[in-house]
């Protein structure tokens, strides 16, 4: 066995470089948005390029945020801050955050949520879960997207639905089982779902724990992502 003389904690190095990357990408997305605003695409082809740029940058950004959050979760550095929030505020924030992405892809999001619906949760974490789902949906939906929330059986159900082709059967059965690697070859690690499930599970109330559920069909005919919070 060899003993490394200068052993560095690789996960720590990775986390700090992911942090840098995330900030860079954040700047990139912001610059890109103001650029598109200043010079709107002149033709179909340009619009398509802008689209790709914007979508991929948003995706990297979302993925890096996830990575960092999972890293912190595993190291016990993730501050969970549960407070009472108006659900509509959090959902509106996420749609606003992705406004330009959705706009560029010609997707018309709908928000259905009672103005006065309040719930206790960590708004930043739940916000980033919803954000990831929205970015993901923007890729698979045709042109509809519904973000909604209501109370069911004493759980807050936040759901994001699209009119795309829906989730593949393997994911419906065990959404997060493939996170460890089998999905890598297909270009998807399902990291997002793992992330969502972990965040949901951090939310506890008495003996009930949050969870996620994937469905196809209702209400828009495509996939439907459900986040259930006690």
């Amino acid at each position: 066995m060899t003993t490394p003389t200068n052993s560095v904690d690789f996960s720590l190095v990775l986390a700090s470089s992911v942090h840098d990357m995330k900030n860079s990408i954040g700047m990139l997305v912001a610059s890109l948005e103001s650029f598109i605003e200043d010079c709107p695409p002149a033709n179909e082809k340009q619009a398509k390029h802008f689209n790709t740029l914007h979508y991929e940058a948003s995706r990297i950004n979302a993925e890096l945020v996830q990575l960092l959050t999972i890293y912190r979760m595993q190291n016990g550095h993730l501050p969970l801050r549960v407070d009472q929030h108006y659900v509509i505020d959090v959902l509106e924030d996420q749609l606003a955050r992705n406004h330009s992405l959705l706009d560029s892809r010609n997707i018309h999001p709908r928000l259905e949520c009672d103005d006065n619906l309040e719930w206790a949760f960590d708004a930043d974490l739940i916000g980033s879960v919803v954000q990831n789902v929205i970015v993901n949906c923007s890729r698979y939906t045709r042109n509809e997207l519904l973000v909604s929330a209501k109370v069911e059986n004493d759980f807050l159900r936040i759901f994001v639905a699209d009119d795309g082709t829906g989730y593949p059967p393997s994911m419906l059965e065990a959404p997060t089982s493939s996170v460890s690697g089998s999905g890598v070859n297909e270009g998807s690690t399902h990291l997002g779902l793992y992330f969502a499930e972990e965040i949901a599970r951090l939310h506890k109330q008495k003996n009930r724990v949050g969870y996620i559920r994937l469905e196809n069909g209702a209400p828009l005919g495509g996939g439907c992502f459900n986040l259930m919070l006690p």
Partner: peptide, 12 residues
Amino acid sequence: MKPVTTKMLEQR
């Protein structure tokens, strides 16, 4: 938390 988009900031 950054990244903050203008639309989101406006809403807040």
